[in-house]
Amino acid sequence: MINTIFLYALAGVGLFSLGLYALIVHAHLLRKILAINIMGSGVFLVLVSLADRTQGIAPDPVPHAMVITGIVVAVSATALALTLMLRVRSETGQAELLEEPPK
């Protein structure tokens, strides 16, 4: 029982790290936005899985509520980010951040 809880939390850490990696290495903005979302999911998974360490009684509801709040924030931010990406594309012709350093 305990082991699975921590396994989920570790999976959350994994998602967080994967998202971070993707956020850095991918140039396309859509991928970056997705990467941020994956990182967010990682955090939510950590929050929600560790809430179940209550030994038998119902899991702690507070992290669940936090996650719901977090998801709404993430959705809102993603919506803004996607629209912004479309605007960047229509202004500059490409959906990438231009200021990448010269290789």
């Binding site: 305990i2 921590f6 939390a9 570790l10 850490v13 950590v46 560790l50 809430a51 360490r53 209550t54 030994q55 009684i57 119902a58 899991p59 702690d60 509801p61 507070v62 992290p63």
Partner: peptide, 15 residues
């Protein structure tokens, strides 16, 4: 995360 206590009621008592 693994160093966290294996049991913790969090705020569930209050809720």
């Amino acid at each position: 995360i693994l160093s966290l206590p294996a049991e913790s009621a969090g705020l569930s008592v209050y809720t």
